[in-house]
């Protein structure tokens, strides 16, 4: 038992907030800016890896070679000058920084909980999180809802820390834009694995893929 708690706390401590506030993006960064950079590099033929939103060694090498070819200092850090040459604008540093963080956090819970589910089912997970934020009975921030202890399996087992794919990011954005396929649901469960009698007694409003929403 003790070990389980310890493991849980360690995971909690390893979760580093993903809001990037610096006006430049470099090795180790994650988020929408990195996705933008990877897409631009891919478009210009410098990068052949996956557009996963993680600034790893592949992205680093691609940025360096882009900078070298374009007469920039090849430091592997995408600042305003490199971003301008790539034809992109970084959201970091501007006032939309927190919004980017919300999209990415929501995308991670969607990916952790529902990758492999139909697209609508992925948006639905984001919608349930946002319905909880709006509800008086739950914490009033996205992070508060997601990290409430025991609320989501993907948080308890660390899957929330996987890098989300482009689909999950798009689903997060759709949910934030107001798409709610669940019609206001606050809960969902997998009927094959759920055990909570309270949950199973609630009226189900709809089913999408492996999840029942209530």
């Amino acid at each position: 038992m003790k070990r389980r708690i310890a493991a849980m706390i360690m995971i909690a401590l390893l979760v580093v907030p993903t809001v990037v506030l610096a006006a430049s993006v470099g090795y180790g960064a994650r988020g929408d800016d990195v996705i933008k950079i990877q897409k631009a590099l891919k478009k210009w033929g410098y990068y052949s890896g996956s557009v996963d939103g993680i600034f790893g060694s592949g992205t680093l090498a691609a940025v360096k070679s882009f900078q070298k070819k374009n007469g920039l200092k090849a430091d592997g850090v995408v600042g305003p000058a490199t971003a301008a040459k790539m034809g992109i604008t970084l959201s970091s540093g501007s006032s939309s920084g927190t919004t980017t963080g919300d999209v990415y956090l929501l995308a991670r819970i969607i990916y952790g909980e529902a990758r492999g589910e139909p697209y609508k089912g992925q948006v639905a997970i984001g919608a349930v999180v946002l319905n909880r934020v709006k509800s008086a009975s739950f914490p009033n921030t996205i992070a508060g809802v997601i990290y409430q202890r025991g609320a989501f399996d993907a948080v308890s087992d660390g899957q929330i820390n996987l890098a989300p794919d482009a689909t999950a990011v798009r689903a997060a954005r759709d949910a934030l834009n107001g798409w709610d396929p669940t019609n206001g649901c606050l809960f969902y469960y997998n009927p094959k694995t759920a055990t909570s009698r309270w949950m199973l007694a609630r009226p189900v409003l709809l089913r999408i893929g492996n999840h029942a929403f209530c």
Binding site: P118, Y119, K120, V123, D174, W179, P181, T182, N183, G184, C185, P203, L205, L206
Partner: peptide, 30 residues
């Protein structure tokens, strides 16, 4: 889908749409 706005839900390849039971309005199309 039941709830505050009951809908009929349909899908096709890469598309989802919900039509309200009352009035047959499009609630969502994606």
């Amino acid at each position: 889908t039941e709830g505050t706005i009951p809908t009929y839900d349909f899908s096709a390849e890469g598309a989802d749409i919900s039509i309200t039971v009352r009035g047959l309005n499009v609630l969502y199309f994606m």
